[in-house]
Design a protein around this nucleic acid. Structure first.
Lengths: 350, 350
DNA sequence: CTGAAAGCGCTAACAA
DNA sequence: TTGTTAGCGCTTTCAG
């Protein structure tokens, strides 16, 4: 058990008969090295099993990386707000201050605002871009431009599979929907089900896959079950309350409710005013307001993944890959879906 | 927004009018500094808001820390085996190779073997000790000795609250039991319940708290419910099968089973041979064999926390604190309890 | 008790 | 295209 001290760039240089700088150049393919010497260096690296010491690299490097985050606008405590926090936490966790994060937001109801945000991102000449998928066609145009400019990008939450992104962190929305349906109906006497949706101005529909998964579970396990949809406005609690009350007057037999988006907390006023021990509600995502609703017993289960951690992960993995100058070990990071109920809420945190 | 470059040890030294080495001495209270200069240095540190750059520290430091892990013996894939993997992963993740881990195991049925293991640990003169709680009285003696020798220690999984440990990572076993009872009985027509236990040679009972939590839930929510206990041998699958078959012949009405330890997989042969759609089984801990049982539909829910990650966390937090030479930011790290069912198993991993 | 200085392994700017 | 070298911020040894 000799000194298990790792080979250094110096050892490689000596073995290859070149200077340390040259080794560095080939390790990070910075170019400007003849194929012949590069080969010698690569041989030496292989022979010694060398891999760069990231601690030393970070200390020596003064380079700064800026990651542009292109995500939807959100009010405080909303899903994308929490995600944003995760981004910044990752940047702050980098004690060497070599990575920073910039935010570019758009209105999910306005393609024009998305275009504008993309333009902004491009202008800021970032080292990389982290984004979500909303307007897929436009996004393809955007990534084409990024590719042309040599700017790598990563996806959070949703992705477009056939694009050459660097990393992805997220949970499969279809599976989440499927699980949600299970939690809502399993072991239950189930009549019909109410699917509560958000009234939107645009036809964008970010939660389609969750809904599909949900419906698929029902088709598989409760073929006779009927689903009624009801739309509520996100910005007007009173109106939402009225609509839900109205809906329940018309469908007094419906005891099972779900929402596919992250805002099941919008149902809270209604649920609070009309308690019903037979009712079950299942929602998604770990917003504080949703957790509160579970704690209060208004929502039975939440299907979640750690959204801040998910966001944290993309930027740290992405940054790592930028700094290391190479693709990450693993490209897709599927987050585990958590089942959150009143009894396992206590120690749920980032 | 000038250069937000952090103050360095050099800045502090200059402001305090001392040498860098001296600053280092007071930062890590290495001693050998007059109170007067130490005061000046502390003032300078406060004024500049200085905090050491861990990247540089790690690079410069040649010191090695060895963490002795004192845990029960375990066969491959058993709970403590998985935990052990987490320990080693944490040591490996330390690219600077400054921390290493050593293993000291004992037989949970033998106080003498525990004493022997403690002796071993002491002889190895480790920088710190990570351990679990089995023989509490003996453990108190051991920690007293550690204290005397100035060796800090951390707890994993279980702890003794009133001891001056450095860190703890674990989940509250009582809460886990409470949650398990909920998952087993909620929304169900519940008759009596079978509590399957491991036959042990010694009176040690590591899962008492889980059982207490479980029982408490029943008392709170199903006061009429009766619980029958059945003991199976851990090392003899055939006998276990017979015992369970026998038990079920005598109690055909019992449809709800649970085990408080990590080895619900011991029931698999029985469950496989006697399928019953009305039966529910709830177990604990994320052993591969348990996950397989869930995947196969034999066990409905598992209450888990990420055991490898939990182990990984103690070691890295503990190591961090050893290296930094000070108590960690947070001492108790309660892990979130996961609810694992067939539908959210897919992306469950470290 | 305190200061000075030689690294840790790598990066990046400059020279050759 | 390649070599050289001055740091990055901290630790640690050796003098004083």
């Amino acid at each position: 058990m000799g000194d298990k001290t790792n080979p250094t760039i110096f050892d490689v240089a000596r073995l290859a008969g070149v200077a340390r700088g040259t080794v560095d150049r080939v390790v990070y393919n910075r170019g400007g090295v003849s194929e012949k010497t590069a080969g010698k260096v690569r041989d030496a690296i292989a022979k010694l099993g060398y891999s760069a010491n990231p601690v030393a690299a970070r200390l020596a490097s003064k380079k700064r990386y800026t990651i542009a985050c292109l995500i939807p606008e959100a009010g405080p405590g909303d899903y994308w707000d929490v995600v944003k926090d995760g981004f910044f936490q990752a940047a702050e966790a980098d004690r060497s201050h070599s990575v920073s994060v910039s935010l570019h937001r758009f209105d999910t109801d306005s393609l024009e605002s998305y275009r504008e945000a993309c333009r902004e991102v491009l202008e800021s000449r970032p080292s990389g871009v982290v984004m979500n998928v909303v307007f897929e066609d436009e996004l393809r145009l955007f990534t084409a431009e990024l590719l042309k400019q040599g700017i790598p990008y990563a996806f959070v939450d949703r992705k477009v599979d056939d694009l050459p992104y660097t990393v992805y962190c997220g949970a499969d929305p279809w599976d989440a929907g499927y699980l949600g349906a299970y939690l809502l109906t399993h072991r239950q006497q189930v009549g019909d089900i109410a699917f509560v949706r958000i009234r939107r101005k645009s036809p964008a529909d970010p939660n389609k896959l969750r809904r599909d998964g949900f419906m698929r579970y029902l088709r598989d396990h409760l073929p006779g079950c009927r689903v009624s949809t009801v739309f509520i406005p996100p910005e007007n609690p009173d109106e939402a309350l009225n609509i839900l009350e109205d809906f329940c007057r018309k469908h007094p037999e419906i005891k099972h409710f779900t929402m596919a988006n992250s805002r099941v907390h919008l149902m809270v006023p209604f649920l609070r005013m009309h308690p019903d021990p037979e009712r079950s509600v299942v929602g998604y995502d770990d917003l504080q307001r949703n957790l509160d609703a579970v704690r209060e017993g208004l929502v039975e289960y939440l299907v979640t993944r750690r959204s801040p951690m998910q966001a944290y992960n993309v930027v740290s993995l992405f940054a790592e890959s930028l700094i290391a100058g190479k693709a990450p070990q693993r490209r897709d990071h599927y987050m585990h879906m958590d089942i959150l109920g009143r009894l396992n809420l206590k120690d749920y945190e980032l």
